[in-house]
């Protein structure tokens, strides 16, 4: 009897260790400081640099693997009418967000900067309008549309019309 319990206990611990890796996905952070209120390091949107390339420190978005943040980003995307220019990722007046072409870069800090600062040819500057943590949620959601976030943190579709094919990809896009 005791040997059975021992072996069962061991396998449970192993399974727990494996599962703990996915723990961050399920966190619902309601009142927490967002990943970085203002990214201080230089965020480059162009790959062109004079002289030897300076390796930019990549600040990852802690919300990337967080299902709650991506889902909130999805709702904010609808509420703030991003679809007005970007449709549901397919683009229109604005560029598509679910393809692999990123004019100003796909790193979280780069997308954050694009939203906050605005971009030429029509992207408004939302800084001071959308609070910081909501911008980071939008960043996570936008990245999820292109398949750049872990698959299990993305939800398959929203509950309104025109399902977003970008947020439930069976096969990752070619990079």
């Amino acid at each position: 009897m005791s040997s059975r319990c021992g072996s069962a206990r061991g396998s449970v611990l192993l399974a727990a260790a494996v599962l703990l890796a996915g723990c961050d996905r399920e966190q619902r952070r309601f009142s927490e400081a967002p990943p970085s209120a203002s990214p201080s390091e230089i965020v480059r949107v162009s790959a062109l640099q004079p002289g030897p390339a300076i390796i930019a420190s990549s600040s990852s978005n802690r919300y990337d693997g967080n299902a709650y943040a991506i889902s909130q980003g999805q709702r904010l995307y609808t509420w703030f009418n991003c679809a007005g220019c970007h449709a549901n990722g397919g683009g229109g007046m604005g560029p598509p967000l679910m393809d692999t072409t990123w004019i100003y870069g796909s790193a979280p800090a780069q997308i954050y900067r694009s939203i906050v600062e605005g971009r030429p040819n029509g992207m408004p500057s939302w800084g001071g309008r959308i609070p910081n943590e909501q911008v980071w949620m939008l960043v996570a959601y936008v990245r999820s549309m292109a398949g750049l976030t872990p698959a299990d943190a993305r939800s398959s579709r929203p509950d309104h019309m025109m399902a977003l094919p970008g947020s439930q990809i069976l096969v990752e896009p070619q990079r």
């Binding site: 309601f30 009142s31 909130q72 709702r75 609070p131 943590e133 909501q134």
Partner: peptide, 15 residues
């Protein structure tokens, strides 16, 4: 200032 403290999970962000 902090709606999340009063009603955690609400859509209104801290301002």
């Amino acid at each position: 200032l902090d709606p999340q403290r009063i009603k955690p999970g609400t859509a209104m962000p801290a301002t």
